[in-house]
């Protein structure tokens, strides 16, 4: 059975100096599952996401992405860090969308979308340009390929960033508060693109404050606080009937 598009974590720990940011986190995300992670700031939800993409390394615990140990290979006594090349290869299978978009300002929207395939996968330029056009069209920006990021609105930039990640054909897409830096009226256009993506069966892990999105789209929901998964379960169930008091008080404040 293929493990593509799955994320499995067991007792992940991570600390920055004396501060423990992730404590014994367990995750089990199946292929095509949409998982939303919610929680107050500083709860470790972004860090967890960044670990799945290798932007941070975990201190201990098991982390398997697409069925493989992520960033490390296991021997009898230890996990050994992979070479940069092998790590890069694993990363190409996990797309990441950032809160601040992080488009390359020196490239046009199209060049941004092409950057992964052309620079990393050494794909044919013409093919990549064609595919980039398709992807830009799919996020509603077919006519904006020649614009530079500085000439696009936040919502447009974020949609280009999603297209850029999709261009690598990842099995998993990670979203780190993708709408938090947007004008309220631009949030919808990004969420629409994400909903489309969810319908296509992409595995998605979304750190978000958009409870409406979580309720409508997510399969599972994780509520994190102080580096611990406080509550997890079916998204609509948790949002409607939170069991833990910490979850209840958080949801009361944000809903």
């Amino acid at each position: 059975m293929s493990n593509d598009g799955t994320i499995l974590a067991s007792r992940i720990r991570k600390s920055f100096g004396p501060k423990t940011v992730l404590q014994d986190i367990d995750l089990d995300i199946g292929s095509g599952e949409i998982c939303c992670i919610i929680g107050p700031s500083g709860s470790g939800k972004s860090t967890l996401l960044r670990c799945i993409n290798g932007l941070e390394t975990v201190d201990s615990g098991i982390l398997k992405v697409n069925g493989d140990d992520f960033g490390y290979y296991e021997t009898e006594h230890a996990y050994h860090a992979l070479s940069p090349k092998k790590l890069a290869l694993q990363r190409t299978r996990v797309g990441m969308v950032f809160q601040q978009f992080n488009l390359f300002p020196n490239m046009t929207a199209r060049e941004n979308v092409m950057s992964g395939p052309v620079l990393v996968k050494r794909a044919d330029k013409k093919e990549s340009a064609k595919r980039a056009q398709e992807l830009l069209t799919s996020v509603g920006l077919g006519a904006f390929g020649d614009r530079y990021p500085a000439e696009l609105s936040g919502g447009q930039q974020q949609r280009v960033a999603i297209a850029r990640s999709l261009a690598m054909d990842p099995e998993i897409m990670l979203f780190d508060e993708p709408t938090s830096a947007l004008d309220p009226e631009k949030v919808g256009e990004v969420l629409t693109v994400m909903k489309e993506l969810a319908k296509k069966g992409m595995t998605m892990v979304v750190v978000t404050h958009e409870m409406g999105f979580a309720r409508e789209v997510a399969d599972s929901l994780l509520f994190m606080d102080e580096g611990i998964v406080v509550e997890r379960g079916d998204a609509r169930e948790v949002l409607a009937n939170p069991k833990e008091s910490r979850t209840q008080s958080f949801l009361k404040k944000v809903l």
């Binding site: 993409n53 932007l55 990363r91 190409t92 797309g95 990441m96 950032f98 620079l119 990640s165």
Partner: peptide, 12 residues
Amino acid sequence: GQIEAADSLGMS
């Protein structure tokens, strides 16, 4: 963020 974006695309 720029470096992280490049990293997440798997750039060397």
